[in-house]
């Protein structure tokens, strides 16, 4: 039933008839819209872990999309489209968020590759996406300031640990715990995305999505 991404032949997904590029365009626009509105608002508030939250939302959106159309490459195409939409965001510094969107879409694509509709892959996709958002901050600083900044961070962490009376051996478990929390937030996003996608498709199939048909 499926055709390659270049084709325009309709593909069935949960009784919905969708095309690959229309689906990428529509969901890319939705992701871009959420990044330029909610994301920009949260960033403006300077709240911590905004990137992690938005990455979880993005992963959830991609997972929901794949419930309707489990085609390979769709998450990646959607990510590229969303990155282009994000580039229309007001303010000059857009390369970082765009790179983040692209990287998250690559990770979600890889996670969903074996089974796009499974809960396990949905959770993995969300977790990877959120962890990337946390890692991207460090990577951005490395690209901006060079390797010295990593030395600085490690040195500051060691000194802060000593001042707080935390032994050096407890550093890695603490870091692991923090990463676990971030991964859990992302996994929650992925899981919710799967649920939202399934509920939405059921509503559409029943004609109960609140719109006259």
């Amino acid at each position: 039933m499926s055709s390659g991404p270049s084709g325009t032949r309709p593909v069935s997904g949960r009784d919905r008839t969708l095309g690959f590029w229309p689906c990428a365009a529509a969901f890319g626009a939705l992701w871009g819209l959420s990044e330029t509105t909610v994301g920009a608002f949260l960033h403006a508030l300077h709240l911590p872990f905004t990137g992690v939250l938005m990455a979880s939302v993005g992963a959830g959106l991609l997972v929901a999309q794949r419930q309707a159309m489990p085609r390979r490459g769709l998450s990646l195409a959607t990510g590229i489209v969303a990155a282009v939409c994000k580039s229309m965001s007001p303010g000059g510094v857009i390369l970082g968020p765009m790179a983040g969107i692209l990287a998250e879409s690559v990770l979600v694509e890889m996670a969903l590759l074996p089974a796009p509709r499974w809960l396990v892959t949905a959770l993995l996709a969300g977790a990877l996406s959120a962890l990337w958002a946390a890692f991207q901050k460090i990577l951005t600083h490395y690209l901006l300031y060079g390797g010295t900044v990593l030395e600085l961070y490690l040195s500051l962490l060691r000194q802060a640990g000593r001042m707080a009376g935390i032994p050096d051996s407890a550093g890695w478990p603490l870091l692991g715990g923090l990463l676990l929390c971030i991964g859990a937030v992302g996994a929650l996003g992925g899981g919710l995305g799967r649920r939202i996608g399934r509920e939405g498709l059921a509503l559409l199939a029943a004609g109960m999505d609140g719109r006259a048909r």
Binding site: R16, L18, P22, A26, F27, G200, L201, R211
Partner: peptide, 11 residues
Amino acid sequence: CETIRVAEELG
């Protein structure tokens, strides 16, 4: 649902 609908209209 609305996004699926938009995608369908394009499709």
